[in-house]
Amino acid sequence: MSNESSFEFLKIAPNEPHITLDKYGRIRLSAKALEKIGIDSAFTPWVAVAYDKASKTFAIQKEELATTAPADAKTKVDRKNYLHIRQTLRDCGIDVPDEYVRYFYAGAVSVKGERFHAFRLDED
């Protein structure tokens, strides 16, 4: 028997800031996404959320920095870092996936003249 095996090393993706949309219509913010947005996990803040259908991109910002966002565009981040927005997604015509999909950090974007953090759909 040879000492060689058929094992191959896995390519493990780096822990990049991302959000995950699951089949329950929840968005989960990764620890790196919380850090990028500036959310301290010691408390549960409110955030404003925007979506661009053409680029399949969510934009998220802390409530106190999103002064132009209407009240119905804001939601609370729960203690497990989820945004519960299933009905909002449906109302906006955004498909809730059968499993889960990830959106990776795509940099800063301007939403109504304010700086938001963009997360674009990972289509790979």
Results as ranks from 00 to 15, higher is better:
S5A: 11
D52T: 03
R86W: 01
T67W: 06
S55C: 01
E63T: 05
K36F: 10
N81L: 07
E114L: 05
T68H: 14
A31N: 11
V96C: 01
A73T: 02
A31I: 04
V77A: 06
Y103P: 05
D78F: 02
L34C: 15
I12S: 13
K62H: 00
A66I: 00
S5N: 12
Y105D: 09
T88K: 09
K74N: 00
R115Q: 13
Y105H: 10
A73L: 04
F7N: 08
V111S: 02
A106F: 04
S41T: 12
V111R: 03
F119G: 04
Y82C: 00
Y82W: 08
R28A: 13
Y103V: 00
K53D: 14
R120F: 00
G38H: 08
K112Q: 15
R79C: 09
P45C: 04
Y103A: 03
S55F: 05
K76V: 08
L83M: 08
A108N: 14
D122G: 06
T20N: 08
L10V: 13
E4K: 11
R120Q: 14
A31Y: 04
A50R: 06
H117C: 09
D72K: 06
H117P: 01
D98A: 10
G38A: 12
T57G: 07
D40N: 14
S55W: 00
H84W: 01
D91I: 00
D78L: 11
F9D: 15
C92R: 15
Y100A: 15
K76T: 11
E16R: 15
K80G: 05
G107H: 06
A50E: 07
D124R: 14
L83E: 04
Y82E: 02
A71S: 11
E64P: 01
D52F: 09
L10Q: 14
A48D: 03
T88C: 00
D98Y: 03
V101F: 05
V101T: 07
I39F: 03
F7H: 13
Q61C: 12
T57I: 03
A48P: 05
M1H: 07
S2Y: 07
A48G: 08
R79K: 15
D72E: 09
R86G: 01
